[in-house]
Design a protein around this nucleic acid. Structure first.
Lengths: 218, 218
DNA sequence: ATTTATTTTTAGATTTGCCTAAATTTTATT
DNA sequence: AATAAAATTTAGGCAAATCTAAAAATAAAT
């Protein structure tokens, strides 16, 4: 029933490589993900298949079983809740938390995770904008997120706003930003969190972190 | 430099058995503490001696070296800080946190522990009344003793408990005894070692020697 | 002071997770 | 389609942490 830390890491690797679809993942990709030799992966795949966590056909690749998918979801939930804790409560920067969360995600206690979730106000997305699976391990994919955590050099579309105040909405009008506006992040300034963005593939402007945080894009 | 989880558990066991003194601990006691076979302990002692964490003489027992003592102190610090977090922030009861803290104490990150300590307000004692070692692993002993050897007709304050079992802690809850409770010894019964005590200058109850032994007062 | 009992260590195995090298299967190329 | 290249698996081993059973050392008892 309970998996070892190594098993959990393989399940998580397969999950990340298959992106919650039923996509088939190959041995070398897993070996690269968990930084181990391909032969070691083969050994582990046999064990995971015995435990019915994956569907495995020699030479043809693997995909997660229903149980494996839920187990992966629970591990990812723990990882993302801990990352949220580290950033929100302990004031880590979002780029400093991954390795610590890799350790914390293996702590075994449903009660602990339930209380941690409550303590954090049952967040639905983590500090990187990734969705947090529910207690059963189900992940509801979220496509929209604040512009502050959207990918650089990518075009995003404004889907909603995170603030309804007139001062905010008036400013958007001035900047010619509305629902449906295309925004491309040109550069992120470390200093104050402001963003250099291209609006509708036309003019380039600089917007504050405060403003970007309230632009929900997809 | 970095120890495995198993090594840390042995170091911690020796620490708890020798009570921060240089007392010699024997193999069977360690085996009992870490719930393993005596032969396994011998194997591990050789490894820890190679790493200069203990002073080991075959058949004669072990004691922690200076480095071993500091390592134990750091592990205990982590354990007690996490217990404080679980009780203070996640609202666990004090008798529910031990096993989870046993897992959390092995998370590797000085930065994390530094921030956790700050987040908790740099507590000096944990929810059981035990002192929290400093960041280097130094433990400042607290002048406290079991109620069984405390002076009669004198008021004492519960400082910590000598047993972490939930049956014991639950009994204390029932008796309305917690850290900080004032206890005055009214009478000592020769027959069974039980004590007639006055709780917080109010009700008088009789407590067993077994219970009194585990009430650490100052 | 011998003998008996207890404690501790050694010897030999097992399991888990990992490795390299060789064999096999699949995929790509000429 | 035959061969070369790449991916995968099998085979055989290793280190860590554990075990049981036997041997050795120490402590207790007659």
């Amino acid at each position: 029933m309970t998996a070892t830390v190594a098993e959990e890491n393989y399940i998580k690797a397969i999950f990340h490589l298959s992106k919650n679809e039923n996509k088939v993942v190959n041995t070398n990709a897993i070996a690269n993900e968990v930084q181990t030799a391909a032969a070691t992966v083969t050994d582990m795949l046999k064990k995971l298949a015995d435990k019915k966590l994956i569907k495995y056909e020699p030479y043809k690749g693997v995909s997660l079983s229903k149980n494996g998918l839920l187990m992966a979801g629970k591990i990812v939930r723990k990882h993302r809740l801990w990352e949220t804790f580290l950033v929100e409560k302990l004031n880590f920067k979002w780029d400093e938390v991954h390795e610590i969360a890799e350790q914390l995600e293996h702590i075994q206690s449903d009660d602990l995770i339930g209380r941690l979730d409550k303590f954090l106000g049952s967040p639905k997305i983590d500090p990187h904008g990734d969705p947090i699976p529910d207690a059963e391990g189900n992940l509801i994919p979220i496509t929209s997120k604040p512009l502050t955590i959207a990918s650089s050099h990518d075009v995003h579309t404004v889907a909603s706003v995170g603030d309804q105040s007139s001062s905010f909405l008036q400013m958007l009008d001035k900047l010619k930003i509305s629902i449906g506006t295309k925004i491309k992040i040109v550069e992120k300034h470390e200093f104050d969190g402001s963003l250099q963005v291209k609006i509708n593939n036309q003019n380039i402007i600089n917007i504050s972190e405060q403003l970007a945080k309230n632009l929900i894009v997809k």
